[in-house]
């Protein structure tokens, strides 16, 4: 048998296994070098230049970064819009997901039917859904404003046509999509041992108490995971605005000019690749800092079973 052969044979087997290993991961390794690492080095370098995507690429030092934080008003507008979206969409998304999962986890009739309905927003995606919402929020004949007029609101919001209502409309859209996020929480809920609830029942703990003392703590790792990915996703939220604001101009009144949309325009409409690269690196650092803060704070509220505290 192979196992019993000489050490020299073993090491040559080990060598051939290692070779196979590198061959197997080659698709990832090559892709990483060519499509991620290489481009990132190039991007970092060009963020210190006035690269225009063609012939000009002169070193300008920190001036791109300095301009971003001092004179570029669109940078600040896009940053504010993105934070506005993240601050509302992420917590609402988590709350919708957790509440949906808890309700769908109850022993009730039509459970399978309800689960299918709740998963529907995850399946309906793409430009079609954005158009669907533009029609739902249509100021004249959309179903939302029809309903608002029916209940007596005389001047319902203009939604995507009004600067103060375009972001709330996008947040409602994302809350609708978040219902499908219940699947992950549902899996988390089903991992909570039933005996815990039985014991709490015997001790006379109310349903609300059980929810806050058992369900939420044991679900906290899932919530934390969804928070981290949700915030990162929200910081990169912009492609919907490309469709919602005509021709991706970020309107009305720059209210949907999200960070990514601004970057897209700087890079591909204005051909200021160097400046857009600086924006990309600022975004990367913001992502890293926000994630690091979340991991730091998570020690205080995320409960891991089997961990000593």
């Amino acid at each position: 048998m192979a196992k019993a052969s000489s050490p020299k044979k073993m090491s040559s087997m080990r060598k051939s296994e290692a070779l196979m290993g590198y061959l197997f991961i080659a698709p990832w390794l090559i892709g990483f070098l060519v499509f991620v690492a290489g481009p990132m080095i190039f991007s970092l370098y060009s963020s210190f230049t006035n690269y225009d995507g063609a012939f000009t690429m002169d070193w300008v030092g920190l001036s791109n970064y300095r301009r971003l934080f001092t004179t570029d008003q669109y940078f600040m507008i896009s940053l504010k819009n993105t934070l506005y979206f993240a601050v509302f969409a992420v917590p609402i998304g988590v709350a919708v997901g957790v509440v949906s999962a808890v309700l769908l986890n109850q022993d009730i009739p039509f459970q399978r039917f309800f689960r299918t309905v709740f998963y529907l927003p995850k399946i309906l995606t793409g430009v079609a859904v954005i158009l669907l919402w533009m029609w739902v929020f249509n100021p004249q004949a959309g179903i939302v404003n029809t309903f608002l007029r029916f209940i007596g609101v005389d001047n319902p919001p203009l939604w995507f046509a009004a600067p103060e209502w375009s972001k709330p409309a996008l947040i409602i859209m994302s809350a609708w999509g978040a219902a499908g996020g219940m699947l992950v929480y549902l899996a988390g809920l089903q991992g909570i041992p039933k005996q815990l609830y039985e014991a709490a029942e015997i001790d006379g703990a109310t349903g609300a108490r059980q929810f806050f003392k058992i369900t939420l703590p044991l679900l906290s790792p899932t919530i934390f995971f969804k928070l981290v990915t949700g915030i990162n996703g929200a910081l990169q939220y912009w492609s919907t605005a490309l469709i919602v604001s005509d021709g991706g101009n970020g309107g009305p009144s720059y209210s949907t000019l999200f960070y990514g949309l601004r970057m897209w325009k700087v890079a591909f409409t204005e051909s200021r690749m160097g400046y857009a690269s600086a924006m990309a690196w600022v975004l990367l650092f913001m992502t890293l800092i926000v994630t690091a803060i979340q991991f730091y704070v998570s020690n205080k509220w995320v409960y891991y079973e089997g961990e000593r505290r």
């Binding site: 991620v36 290489g38 990309a280």
Partner: peptide, 25 residues
């Protein structure tokens, strides 16, 4: 290598979008 793989999940797609475009161009 696996740690590197995991950490690339953190990189926003927008960071690589511009240099990738330059590469394909």
């Amino acid at each position: 290598l696996f740690m590197i793989l995991l950490s690339t999940m953190m990189i926003p797609g927008m960071v690589t979008m511009i240099p990738q475009y330059v590469l394909y161009a």
